[in-house]
Design a protein around this nucleic acid. Structure first.
Lengths: 223, 223
DNA sequence: ATGGACGTTCAGCTGCTGTTCAGCTCACAG
DNA sequence: CTGTGAGCTGAACAGCAGCTGAACGTCCAT
């Protein structure tokens, strides 16, 4: 899952970002409305979290622009304090949900998940690749009848692979799709997680469903 | 991915070129508008990075000419300093994005990738030439029912041939299209890869689909 | 404070793959 | 028929992409 946060308050942005990342969600942060608009159009997010009060371009305007451009990515609007802005107004510009500060983390995450699940275009439904069964909503995964325990990041990688089953996914794409855009580290991290996944979903079952395509990337096959 | 940079400042061009190549992107550099126009029309790029201030022919004019000629390769315009040129003007002549100097490398690369991604959505379809089936997305290839394993470079060469099936492709064009344009090595490398491909996709099947056109190049035929 | 779970980094290893090279074949011109 | 150069071919080699186990640091629950 990939989320864009448009928030000028660095503290809030950092805190929310950390929290979501701990949940295995890839987070990009934009600090003003201009950047936010650009990132929203250039990338594919599951949910966009919009602060209402923004330098450059306020949240309502930004949201309305996205909708006008045909972008229906679910938007969660953050209002600075209760009553400051009319909820109805927020919903009218095309936001799908709103939340008033201060909010609890748990609620924020729950709402983000709900929005991601609700959006009909995406594929929140469980996916099968051969006898591998992945349920993004419940964050659980089975090979045949045996349930497999995965960490947040492992699940995120597997989910990405499953959603593009059969295709070759370049390492860079995995990095961009599962980790943050500004992830500075070594691309080797992808290999490490592929290793973890293989050890959990393939080796115990004598399978080899995650293939390496040298010089190109990885491919999840039903094999 | 292949990028053309039209930039008269040798320092900037060199730095950007080095950086992009380190990212695995093939880079060609033109030093003025005239050269840039010629290279842009002669080769097929994923993205063109245009400096606005250019000797010979400025970036806006060059971009407008490309568009007029039906070339819709994504263009990223570089303006020397903020406000020097109107962003709207840049976008109006057909540029897809702009960036003001000085810019950060990370941003430049991100924007280039974004532009390439946006346009690359149109070419992922599998191609058939006779009973040879090539699927670029899955990076797989079949002759009839038998799957053929190819290395990254072999696949790149075959993909190029398949996309221009029936045409005679000069060795130089293959070198330019599959390798980096300023590839320093021996052109014999093309012959070597043609040999590899023949051994994999023709000889085991008693075919001769890659023909040599002496003095001209190679041609992939459905035979 | 302690211990564990998790994400990330690191260094060494392995085998594949891209490239070079030298000698060969063969088509074509004279 | 013969010379020439374009193209063919197998082998050799160096570099690096990918694999792997382990160590490290951080966060969290106990």
């Amino acid at each position: 899952m990939r989320v864009l946060i448009v928030e000028d308050d660095a503290k809030v942005a950092a805190a929310v970002g950390r929290g979501l990342r701990a949940e295995g969600i890839a987070v990009d942060v934009a600090r003003d409305g201009i950047d936010g608009a650009w990132m929203a159009t250039e990338n594919d997010y599951d949910v966009i979290v919009l602060d209402v009060m923004l330098p450059g371009k306020n949240g309502y305007v930004l949201c309305a622009e996205l909708r006008a451009a045909g972008d229906w990515t679910p938007v969660l609007m953050l209002t600075a304090k209760d009553g400051e802005l009319d909820e109805a107004e927020g919903l009218d510009t095309g936001a799908d949900d709103y939340l008033t500060k201060p909010f609890s983390f748990v609620v924020l995450i729950a709402r983000i998940r709900a929005l991601a699940r609700r959006s009909s275009r995406r594929v929140p439904a469980p996916v099968d690749v051969g006898d591998l069964h992945v349920d993004p909503v419940r964050r659980r995964c089975w090979r045949g009848n045996s349930e497999i325990t995965l960490t947040a990041r492992e699940f995120a990688v597997l989910e990405y692979l499953v959603r593009h089953a059969g295709q070759v996914i370049p390492k860079r794409e995995l990095l961009g799709g599962v980790w943050d855009d500004d992830f500075a580290g070594d691309a080797n991290i992808v290999e490490v997680y592929i290793r973890h996944l293989r050890r959990k979903i393939d080796e115990p079952f004598g399978r080899r469903s995650i293939e390496t395509v040298r010089g190109a990337g990885y491919r999840l096959s039903p094999a």
